[in-house]
Design a protein around this nucleic acid. Structure first.
Lengths: 125, 125
DNA sequence: TTAGGTGTACTATAACAGATAGTACACTAT
DNA sequence: ATAGTGTACTATCTGTTATAGTACACCTAA
């Protein structure tokens, strides 16, 4: 369910956050679903429980999940909306890169193809 | 000429690299131009000469500039081509974000508009 | 009630990257 | 010679990331 890259520059806890949000976006995790517990997932991924706690804590701060002490941690009803809203930032990131590509003399068509290809590829999956 | 953000997560030396390449892309820095010296620029930006050395060293490794000890540091003739080639990676980044946007249910048109807006804005500048 | 699972909190430590400080040396142009 | 350039090196500080270990509170089910 989760895949950790220990060599890249992205911290483990951020990878957990990203992947959890991705699972929510793709509908694998739905509102009310229980997230894997700190202990079991930390064993499964061979990472420290504290690292996982940090990731879950941030997700909770964003309102993506809610903890029920002694019971478990669950995806909230707002999760999908909240994660979706975060995509606005991604659109800004695309704009930033777009300006660089333009400055680099990359034709608009090539940038357009990249976005188009991404959508076609994702839609198939 | 250079602008440093000390609070963001991007290391200073990376900001220097990015901005130098950007200046080359936009034609502000041309082949043969001298880059600001380690000492003067480090004073101007209030950063450590070593940090600057690190940035310049990487640019040199990429072939963007070449040092003439005792003389200065100059933009190479290949600089524009080399920096331009690096843009391929940016296209991959756009694809990656595009897939996420698609997964998030952001309509293709919105992603398209973002790229279009970037090109129009950049072209005016 | 007890056992076992859950989340939470805390301290301590290690490792690493980024940045700074300071010094010293070699080279080139004037 | 002088002043500016690049280069090399050690040492130190800081913040982030990750780990280790411990302890406690809570809930559920047997």
């Amino acid at each position: 369910m989760f895949q950790i890259d220990r060599f890249g520059r992205t911290p483990i806890y951020e990878q957990i956050i990203d992947q959890t949000q991705r699972l929510i976006l793709t509908g694998v995790l739905k509102a009310g679903d229980q997230l894997p517990s700190v202990r079991t997932l930390s064993q499964e991924l061979s990472i420290n429980p504290n690292t996982l706690q940090k990731a879950y804590g941030e997700l909770e701060r964003r309102g993506v999940c809610i903890s029920a002490p002694g019971n478990g941690r669950f995806v909230t009803g707002d999760a999908l909306r909240i994660v979706g809203e975060g995509m606005e930032e991604q659109l800004e990131e695309i704009k930033r890169i777009g300006r660089e590509l333009c400055a680099a003399g990359i034709p608009f068509e090539r940038a357009l193809e990249a976005v188009k290809a991404a959508y076609e590829k994702e839609a198939k999956v």
